[in-house]
């Protein structure tokens, strides 16, 4: 069995490694996009809530409000995510 009969594709182990690389890259990009979306939304909501009358700089109370607001937005997101997921799973089981 001469090796030159099978010139392509690349050796299996190399291909497996490249496959894993593609998969982990895709997962990483998605996680990043998710985090960006969450931060963008939180920024929008918290700007609206905390910076009601923009002045020349963020005041101390505005900064405190923003810190709390970010925490609450993440908490709200977690509640929504948990509720939505359990509902979808329940309806999938029922059908």
């Amino acid at each position: 069995m001469a090796d030159f009969f099978k010139s392509s594709p690349a050796p299996t182990s190399d291909m497996a490694a490249r496959k894993e690389a593609v998969i982990s890259k895709v997962r990483q990009e998605i996680a990043l996009a998710n985090a960006q979306e969450l931060l963008n939304k939180a920024g929008e909501k918290c700007f609206a809530k905390c910076v009601t009358k923009p002045s020349t700089s963020l005041s101390g109370s505005e900064q405190t409000c923003l810190t709390h607001c970010l925490e609450r937005y993440l908490e709200a997101f977690t509640i929504v995510s948990r509720t939505y997921t359990s509902r979808v799973l329940r309806e999938r089981d029922a059908s």
């Binding site: 939304k41 909501k45 709200a76 997101f77 929504v80 995510s81 939505y84």
Partner: peptide
Amino acid sequence: SIHNIASLCWD
């Protein structure tokens, strides 16, 4: 969907 609903329900 979760991002969207979270935004609606936050408001």
